[in-house]
Structure formats: C-alpha cells, structure tokens
Simulated scan of single mutants.
Amino acid sequence: MTRTSLSAPAPARLRVAIVDDHQLLLDGLSARLAKSRSGIDVAVMTTSWRGLLASEAFPTDIVVLDLNLEDDIPIGVKIRAISAAGAKTIVISRHADTASIRGAIRAGAIAFVPKSESAAELLEAIRAAAVDRQRHSPVVQRALTDGASDVDPGLGRQEMRALVLYAAGRSIRQVAEDMETTQETVKSYIKRARRKYLAVGIDLGSKLLLRRHAVRQGWITPE
C-alpha cells in the first residue's frame, strides 16, 4: 500500500497595493514589504488613484494610500471606494497632525502611519489590519487622544467636494466645471458647508481660514 504524505497548505500571502505619488518611496516600500519572509505580495504599485482603480490586480487585501495625492478627491471618498471593493485602507502621510490622523480614521481607515515612522511600523500595521485589528504607533495614539473632542460637521458628498476644490485655489467657475454643475449650485454647496462648520464652532468664512483648515485636515498640502 502506498502511503501519501499530505503537507499543510502554505499560508495565504497578503496582497497589498501601494499608492503614492513619489516613485522613490514606492520603490523603497515595495522592496521592503515584498521580502519573502514578510508574507506580503505587492500586487499594485502606482502613483495615482486612477492607476489603482484601473489595475487588474485591484482589489487587494489592503491598500496603503498616501493622504495627499493632490488629485482633489477627498480621502473619505477614496476610503469608502476601497472599502466597497472589499479592501482595507492604511493611510500614510508626511503630515501627522491631529486633524489629518483623526480625519483618516473617522473616514474608515484602519490605520494611519506617518512617513516619519519606519517601514517596520507600516509592516506591523499591515499585519494587524489583516486580522481586523487596529495598530497605532505612540505618535498616532497621542493624536487620537488629544483630538478626542473633534467634531464632524456632517457635510454631504457634494458639499465636501466643492469645499475641497475651492480650498485648493479653484475659482467658483472652475469648481462648477469640475463638478459639471452651475456656479450658483457650487456657491450653495460652499455656503451650506461653511454654515455647518460654523454650527460646530469652526469659522471658515474667509478664504484664508478655509485654506488653513484644509491644510490641517490634509485636504491640500502647504505651499
């Protein structure tokens, strides 16, 4: 009688996408995460949000997403799209302020890793995300604790988009063109968004105040 030896199946490797507009960072992270003993396959490596969506390898298990891709698409919209596709999002950013961190987590990111952290910290965040567990570095945990009183103004999707585009320096006419609507509609979106922010104690009544808030939130990058 022939005895057949049954070996245990190899553990499934995590499929990860990395989205960052700096190719050097992409190359470095990909090389670090793809080491054979990490248990990770970098299935997508792209410099743009559209590149991620267009990839045949997406959805992956986890998407490592740069907060500031400068494409005028709010981070919340991206995270919701990734979640709808069945993947988890880890946000990375060179901005580690309280507003940016809490905004990403509130939008649905399972973790936030500042770019000042090591690749080992990102690796641990990925492993934790794979088992539906949040892992926060001391820097992030401190920001979450310090920002516990942050409030959500409850903006609608179109209000949020109009506000972000306007904060980024576009004129009302340009925002209307981008959103394929009228200038009067855009003005209405921005007016309602400002009113909702004012109701929770945040004054965005001037372009300067709006831009400062946009930088703090990570919607746009400082010049």
Rank of each mutant, 00 (worst) to 15 (best):
residue 5 S to T: 09
residue 10 A to C: 06
residue 12 A to K: 15
residue 14 L to G: 00
residue 18 I to T: 03
residue 19 V to C: 12
residue 19 V to E: 10
residue 23 Q to W: 07
residue 24 L to R: 11
residue 25 L to S: 09
residue 26 L to Q: 04
residue 28 G to R: 05
residue 31 A to W: 07
residue 32 R to T: 01
residue 33 L to V: 04
residue 35 K to N: 00
residue 38 S to Y: 01
residue 39 G to D: 00
residue 42 V to N: 08
residue 42 V to H: 06
residue 44 V to P: 02
residue 47 T to M: 09
residue 50 R to K: 10
residue 52 L to Y: 12
residue 53 L to S: 11
residue 55 S to L: 05
residue 56 E to V: 11
residue 56 E to P: 15
residue 58 F to D: 01
residue 63 V to P: 04
residue 65 L to I: 07
residue 70 E to L: 09
residue 71 D to L: 00
residue 74 P to E: 04
residue 75 I to V: 14
residue 78 K to Y: 01
residue 79 I to V: 14
residue 86 G to A: 14
residue 88 K to E: 13
residue 91 V to W: 15
residue 91 V to N: 09
residue 93 S to C: 06
residue 94 R to F: 08
residue 97 D to G: 10
residue 99 A to P: 00
residue 100 S to F: 00
residue 101 I to A: 13
residue 105 I to F: 15
residue 106 R to C: 13
residue 111 A to R: 13
residue 111 A to K: 03
residue 111 A to H: 13
residue 113 V to T: 05
residue 115 K to Q: 06
residue 116 S to Y: 12
residue 116 S to R: 12
residue 120 A to W: 03
residue 126 I to H: 05
residue 127 R to S: 04
residue 131 V to H: 11
residue 131 V to Q: 13
residue 132 D to C: 14
residue 135 R to Y: 12
residue 138 P to Q: 00
residue 140 V to E: 03
residue 144 L to F: 08
residue 145 T to A: 08
residue 147 G to A: 06
residue 155 L to N: 05
residue 158 Q to G: 02
residue 159 E to Q: 13
residue 161 R to L: 03
residue 162 A to F: 02
residue 163 L to Y: 02
residue 165 L to K: 02
residue 171 S to Y: 15
residue 173 R to E: 13
residue 175 V to H: 11
residue 180 E to P: 01
residue 181 T to Q: 08
residue 184 E to S: 15
residue 189 Y to L: 06
residue 190 I to A: 01
residue 192 R to M: 09
residue 195 R to G: 01
residue 196 K to G: 05
residue 200 V to N: 10
residue 202 I to E: 15
residue 203 D to V: 04
residue 206 S to Y: 15
residue 209 L to S: 08
residue 212 R to I: 06
residue 214 A to M: 02
residue 216 R to K: 08
residue 222 P to W: 03
residue 223 E to W: 07
residue 223 E to M: 14
